[in-house]
Amino acid sequence: MAEGNGTSTPIETDAVIIGAGPCGLFAVFELGLLDIKAHVIDILDRPGGQCAELYPEKPIYDIPGLPVVTGQGLTDSLMAQIKPFGATFHYSQRVDQLAKLEDGRFRLKTDLGTEFIAKVVVVAAGGGSFTPKRPPLAGIEAYEGTSVFYSVRRMDDFRDKDVLVVGGGDSALDWTLNLQPVARSLTLLHRRDDFRGAPHSVEQMRALVRDGKIALLIGQMTALKGGNANLSAITVKTKDGETDVAANRLLPFFGLTMKLGPVADWGLNLNENLVLVDTEKFETNTPGIFAIGDINWYPGKLKLILSGFHEAALMAQAAHKIVYPGKKLLFQYTTSSSSLQKKLGVS
């Protein structure tokens, strides 16, 4: 599911939802009730947006009707609630391009090359796409993509290289284990001799250290050395003072932060990095492109999940007019409408 479709045939659908945070997920529900089929795209490898990535285990107390629910719990419940509508999810890819076609529909393209043609687009991009945190070391930008990587897309980039992996979580441990066989040398650097990753991975890592196959260093990076986009060493502060670790590949894993990213390039009117919408339809300055949840702005906006849910409901009404022009929409309750219940699979 994570791969791009690679072919040049775009996926045609009613709606594309950009972002699988709580608001994007609930949009599947509201659109689904109105027979609008959706594809959902997210840069993360799973649904839930901020709730799943930043606070899966923390409690939320202001979801109406749920006195307390965790970030992951809410995500799981939303996934169960939208299941009847059979949306297709495309994870681990970022929507880079969004343009209007002559026939009034929209064409979208992800960084993996997957293309979509949709009648309406729902931007539910939250605080923007999750991007790896860049260590605040002087000059690091110059090495990115050549010596400094924040993820491993091709193992070959690390073959026969001297690799320094930094971090104490699962990403750092997994890539230490995976790259050790291909790298010329590998050092794992972490600020303390305590790892947050899965105990099994920690054990495997420690075994490699015992066998002399990798080095484990406790300390923190303070500077990068090299030139012409090629890294040669990383200065590390340890409890015994500063030392240089020779390496030509650096993989820092310090978690993710949200950056607006490509949303800024789609010709949408912005207000301080937020997409301006009206409060009747939550439509942007481009008719047919809607924005809901944390990514939008209007007078009085509150970045609350419940506000995003409301926005999804009103957006869906407006989207219906575009997807089914001329078709009259009857207002119905899920409690009493047999046709809605059929769609939900409960009748």
Partner: peptide, 11 residues
């Protein structure tokens, strides 16, 4: 908090 400090700089 100690776990989260892994994501800070110059701890």
């Amino acid at each position: 908090e100690e776990d989260m400090l892994d994501f800070a700089f110059d701890v």
